[in-house]
């Protein structure tokens, strides 16, 4: 498992760790039933706070992604194949790649394109959430 944390982006570190572990599970880098590195190992490798690692593991357990077996360690929760989203992720990557190419053809800068993307994503989230008072 190749973990990389960006400490200074403002995104909570435990969330980053959770995302990376989830991603590793989804792409089959680590399979159901396999043991995850100990808190100590991760804290040591990334030179980070062990409490934060512990928190990530706790939340992952709460979400059902991993299970903590006291005395043995932390293991990926055994789940049927629905956890494997490798194909969907590859598809989404292709879709976005073509969107980026077309955006670049409009001569937008990377930053502008990113802003448009985030704006659309927020708008989409808004439409999906329960009805609220419209403008």
């Amino acid at each position: 498992m190749n973990l990389r944390i960006h400490f200074s982006t403002g995104v909570p570190i435990y969330l980053q760790l959770m995302e990376q572990i989830k991603h590793a599970v989804e792409t089959n880098a680590i399979r159901a039933g396999e043991q995850l590195p100990t808190i100590r190992k991760i804290a040591e490798e990334l030179t980070m706070n062990p409490n934060t690692v512990a928190r990530a593991y706790r939340e992952l357990e709460r979400d059902g992604i991993v299970e903590v077996r006291h005395g043995s360690g932390v293991f990926v929760a055994g789940q049927p194949s629905s956890a494997n989203k490798t194909a969907e992720i590859r598809q989404a990557g292709e879709v976005l790649r073509s969107a980026i190419e077309r955006g670049m053809a409009l001569e937008l800068s990377e930053a502008e394109l990113r802003r448009v993307f985030e704006e659309e994503l927020s708008r989409w989230q808004e439409n999906v959430t329960p009805p609220r008072r419209q403008r």
Binding site: I39, R40, A43, E44, T47, M48, N49, P50, N51
Partner: peptide
């Protein structure tokens, strides 16, 4: 920093 992280962990 590594020594500090280690102290907190172990």
């Amino acid at each position: 920093l590594r020594a500090l992280a280690d102290l907190a962990t172990v």
